Simulated assay, not measured.
Amino acid sequence: MFILKSTSPRRIKILTDLGFQFRVEPANIDETQNQGELPLVYLERMVHSKLGSQGNENNLYLAADTIVVFQNEILHKPIDLEDSIHILRKLSGNKHSVFSGAGLRANASTDFFYEETIIEFKNWKEKEIREYILRCKPFDKAGSYGIQDEKGPVLSREGSYTNVMGFPLRSFFSRSSVWLPFCGRS
Rank of each mutant, 00 (worst) to 15 (best):
V41P: 03
A108C: 11
G101H: 02
N59I: 00
L40F: 10
R185K: 14
H76Y: 09
E120W: 07
I79E: 14
N163R: 07
G93R: 04
I79D: 11
E37F: 12
E126R: 12
K137V: 11
I14T: 02
S8W: 03
L91D: 05
Q71E: 14
S92Q: 05
P168Y: 05
E31R: 09
W179C: 10
S100L: 07
A108E: 15
I74E: 01
F2K: 02
Y114G: 02
P153M: 06
D111N: 14
S8R: 02
S144P: 08
L38A: 14
L51N: 01
R130F: 12
E25T: 07
I129G: 01
S144I: 11
K127H: 12
I3M: 01
R130S: 07
P181Y: 07
P78Q: 08
L169H: 03
G159Y: 03
L169D: 05
G146K: 01
F22A: 04
G146H: 02
I74H: 00
L40G: 06
I74L: 04
R135P: 02
K127C: 05
G184I: 00
F22G: 02
L15Y: 01
K151L: 15
V24A: 06
Y114I: 04
I129L: 06
E120C: 12
Y61Q: 01
H96S: 04
S109I: 14
N58I: 09
N163Q: 06
A106P: 03
I129M: 02
K137F: 09
H48V: 13
M46V: 15
W179F: 10
I85R: 01
F70G: 01
L62C: 04
E37S: 11
Q148K: 06
G152N: 09
E158Y: 13
I119V: 15
E44G: 11
N163S: 06
E150C: 10
I12C: 05
Q71V: 06
E158S: 11
K151C: 15
E44T: 14
K125S: 11
P181M: 10
S53C: 07
G184N: 14
G103D: 04
I79N: 11
G36R: 02
T7A: 10
L81M: 15
T162R: 08
H76G: 13
I3V: 13
P26Y: 00
R130G: 05
A106M: 08
A108L: 15
K125L: 12
L81E: 13
F2R: 01
